[in-house]
Design a protein around this nucleic acid. Structure first.
Lengths: 246, 246
DNA sequence: CCGGATTTGTGCGTATGTATG
DNA sequence: ACATACATACGCACAAATCCG
C-alpha cells in the first residue's frame, strides 16, 4: 500500500491529488456510504503531508457533495452514486437512464446542415461532400447534465430529423417520425480524456475532470448506417454497461 | 470558442490545464501529425496567459513525447497514436492487441487463493465464502505498460489456472489447459477515474492521468461464469472498441 | 548574402498560490 | 492565525535559430 509518494512539481496541487485519491476510493466502494473516513491526522500520516493539506482536500470533496465534515465527530461519506448507461445492440438513452433517474431530458443546443467530412461520410457510408444534418444536444438526469452529444444524419434521407427531435426530445422518437421504427447499435468506440473548456462549461465540470468519449454508429435493420454520433459523458456521473445477449 | 476562462484556484496549475486542452485537440485530430502548432505567442493570446505559461505546457507535452519544439521553426505534433482494444463476445487481449503492437506480454504480478466476497461470489455465481483464485497481471505492448488486471476464478473448478497462466502468459491458453476451449464475454462495465498512486506506479503514469476501469464477466458456452476481472487501462494509450456482429 | 520578421530559448524581478510547522 | 519556503504565473528584455523577400 502507498507505494509511491505524491509528486510535487506535477502541476497538480497535493491537496487535489489527495482529493482525487479519496474520491476514487469512495467511488470504488472501498469506503461505504455514511461510513466515517479516517481522521484528518490519520490521513495526514498516511499521505505524509501536513494536516492543512488534508483539510484542503476534504474541503474540495465537501464542495462536490461527496463528503461532509462534522465538528467533533469526523468526516462522513454522503454519496457515491453513478448512473449506469447501458450500451448494447438495442440501447436507447431514455430506456436505460429513465429507470434510474427521476427526470430525463434532451435539450437541443444547435441544429445545422453541413457538408460531410470524409470521417462522417465514411461512417454513414455516403459520398463525401453531400449534405448532413448536425444535431447538438445536452442530456440531463435529475437536473444535472450527464452528456453532450453531436449526431450526424444523412440530410437526403432524414430532412426533418431536427424538427422531429425538437418536438419529441428523443432520438428514438424522432427517427420513428422519419420512418425508422427500429435500429441497432453497430459499433461503439470509447476513450477517456480530460475535460476541455467546452466540457467544463456545458457539463458543469471542474478543470482536471474526466470525460468518457464515445463514437457510435447506429444502423437500420438492413445494416445501413443512419446515425453517427460523438458523445461526451461526465465520467464521475456515469458508468457504461455493455451487455451481450447470449 | 474559448467560452470559459481557465480556473486559477482549482489546485491544477494553468500550464497543466493548457497541456490537457492541447493534448485533447491533438488526440481528437484537430491537429494532425507533423503539423505545426500555433506559435507560443498566439497560444498565449488565445488562453490569455503569459508566454512562459504556454512554454511550461508545451514542455510537459514534449516530455510525454507528443510534441517537439525546434528553435526558430515552431512546435510540431510527433504522435497521436492509441492502441485500439476490441471488446466483443469473443474478444481476446492477445488477438486484439497483437496485430497492432510489435510485442505483447502478460506478466504475472501475484497469485493467491482468497475467500470469495459477496461481490465476487455473485459475479461467478458461486456460494459466498468459497475459495477463489486471484490472479494479478500486467499487460504490456511495445515495452509500455497498457493495463493491469485482477481476475478471479472458482478455485474448485480451476485449481491449476495460476500455474497454467505462468507458463503460457495468456488467459485464453491457461483456460484451454483447464479444459475450457471456448468462452464468451457476458458483460462489461466501464468507468473512468483519475490514476491512483498504485496506477502511477504500475502503469507508469503521472498524477492527474486517467485510467479506464472495466469490470468484466466471461462465461463458458453453457453460460456459466468462469472469470470475473477488473482491468485498469492507461487511458491515453488505448481506446476501447465495441463491435456488434449484425 | 543581407536584413527584417518570426519563432523558440533564457534570465531576472515580483506577486500570488501552495505546503509546512 | 502567523511565519517560512517553494511552486506557479506574470511582465519585460534579449539572445539564438530559422524563414523569406
Amino acid at each position: 500500500m502507498n507505494v509511491k509518494a505524491l509528486e510535487r512539481r506535477s502541476g497538480i496541487a497535493i491537496w487535489r491529488q489527495i482529493a482525487d485519491e479519496l474520491r476514487n476510493e469512495i467511488a470504488t466502494n472501498l469506503a461505504l456510504k455514511d461510513s466515517r473516513l479516517p481522521s484528518e491526522l490519520t490521513l495526514a500520516k498516511r499521505f505524509d503531508v501536513n494536516r492543512h493539506t488534508v483539510r484542503a482536500a476534504l474541503n474540495a470533496l465537501a464542495k462536490e457533495g461527496i463528503v461532509e465534515s462534522r465538528q467533533g465527530q469526523g468526516t462522513f461519506v454522503r454519496r457515491q452514486t453513478r448512473i449506469s448507461y447501458p450500451i448494447g445492440k438495442r440501447t436507447r438513452f431514455s430506456d436505460g437512464i429513465g429507470k434510474q433517474a427521476q427526470t430525463t431530458r434532451g435539450k437541443l443546443l444547435s441544429l445545422s446542415t453541413e457538408i460531410a467530412t470524409p470521417e462522417i461520410a465514411s461512417a454513414l457510408q455516403i459520398t463525401a461532400g453531400s449534405n448532413v444534418i448536425c444535431l447538438d444536444a445536452l442530456s440531463e438526469a435529475d437536473g444535472m447534465p450527464v452528456s453532450r452529444s453531436t449526431s450526424w444524419f444523412c440530410a437526403q434521407r432524414f430532412p426533418d430529423i431536427g424538427a422531429a427531435y425538437q418536438t419529441t426530445g428523443s432520438i428514438t422518437k424522432a427517427l420513428a417520425h422519419c420512418g425508422v421504427d427500429d435500429y441497432l447499435r453497430q459499433s461503439t468506440e470509447i476513450e477517456a480524456h480530460h475535460a476541455t473548456m467546452n466540457d467544463t462549461e456545458y457539463l458543469q465540470l471542474s478543470p482536471g475532470a474526466i470525460v468518457l468519449v464515445t463514437q457510435a454508429i447506429n444502423s437500420d435493420t438492413d445494416g445501413n448506417p443512419i446515425q453517427y454520433s460523438k458523445t461526451r459523458f461526465a465520467a464521475d456521473r456515469v458508468s457504461l454497461m455493455i451487455a451481450n445477449e447470449l
